[in-house]
């Protein structure tokens, strides 16, 4: 049995934000519930009031606005997987959605919930980091866009205030000739928390050199991280084994792995190296194909 709480059922987003403001800091938003309900049951979180934002229309859209792909934070992982727009302009996120937990969780878990829960191993984060995504944090009467890289503070801690709700996520439509991929290692094929996850984005210029790059890691630090040093190595270079090797070394240096129930620290470090190297090697293969085609 879950502990006792009051449940508020807003019909609109402004109503939900008023409720969060009215009951802060004792109120929490409830979205898909795939993290929050087990946390309530286990006593990890004890809010007196839950504001049910699951199913609010204002949080359920995926669309194009000017140069951005924008989606409501209430979009489920199953919705992400089915979206042609995200397939075209955010493949790295769709790859993460494909291997996210299992179909039952994907039907229910929301993107906003996965971000707000702020697990170091959250699978939507490395993809959204390499897309340079921004989050909309709304409270009653105001809202702000923040870069995802500035959002996380520590394990399960973010800059989101008690009165705020993540309402949307957006990223610029990537330029043509952009490669973006996600890989993770898990101890079984489904319903598994990532041991290490890696996302890579590479954009090629006319010359076939890399004009922009992003590398992000999950589950190797208190929060998912971007590895800017690795990106600096890649920028302006043609992808070669030497360049890939240097970038990968920076990724490994940036990781501050711990040992836990899923893996030793040493194994995590090794896997960070292997997955980063593999994704960059795939990017190299892809870039050579692009070059031959042009």
């Amino acid at each position: 049995m879950l502990p006792s709480f009051e449940l508020l059922m807003p019909e609109t987003l402004p109503e939900a934000l008023e409720m969060l403001a009215g009951y802060a800091p004792d109120a929490m938003p409830l979205a898909g519930g795939t993290n929050l309900v087990p946390d309530l049951r286990g006593g990890k979180r004890r809010p007196g009031v839950l504001v049910n934002v699951h199913g609010l229309d204002a949080l359920q859209y995926i669309g194009r606005q000017d140069r951005y792909v924008v989606m409501g934070a209430g979009v489920s992982l199953a919705d992400v997987l089915e979206s042609e727009l995200i397939g075209a302009h955010g493949r790295v996120l769709q790859e993460a959605a494909r291997v996210f937990a299992n179909p039952l969780i994907r039907n229910r878990a929301t993107v906003g919930g996965n971000l707000g829960n702020a697990s170091p191993a959250a699978d939507t984060v490395p993809p959204l980091l390499v897309l340079d995504a921004e989050l909309k944090l709304a409270s009653a009467g105001e809202s702000r866009w923040v870069g995802l890289e500035d959002f996380f503070v520590d394990v399960c801690d973010t800059i989101c205030r008690h009165v705020e709700l993540i309402t949307a996520v957006r990223w610029l439509v990537p330029p043509p000739r952009t490669f973006s991929r996600f890989r993770k290692l898990t101890l079984r094929k489904s319903t598994a928390i990532s041991v290490v996850s890696v996302a890579v984005r590479v954009t090629l210029g006319e010359s076939g050199r890399c004009v922009d790059a992003a590398v992000a890691l999950g589950a190797v630090a208190p929060t998912p991280i971007r590895v800017h040093e690795a990106e600096e190595v890649l920028r302006g270079e043609a992808l070669t084994p030497e360049v890939i090797d240097r970038a990968t070394r920076f990724a490994c240096t940036a990781a501050s792995c711990i040992g836990d129930v899923r893996s030793s620290a040493a194994y995590r470090e090794r896997v960070t190296d292997v997955l980063t190297r593999r994704l960059l090697a795939e990017a190299q293969e892809w870039s050579e194909e692009q070059w031959e085609r042009s």
Binding site: G32, G33, T34, P38, N107, R108
Partner: peptide, 9 residues
């Protein structure tokens, strides 16, 4: 859509 009934209020 399939859901875990133990996770849904």
């Amino acid at each position: 859509r399939t859901v875990y009934a133990c996770l849904v209020l």
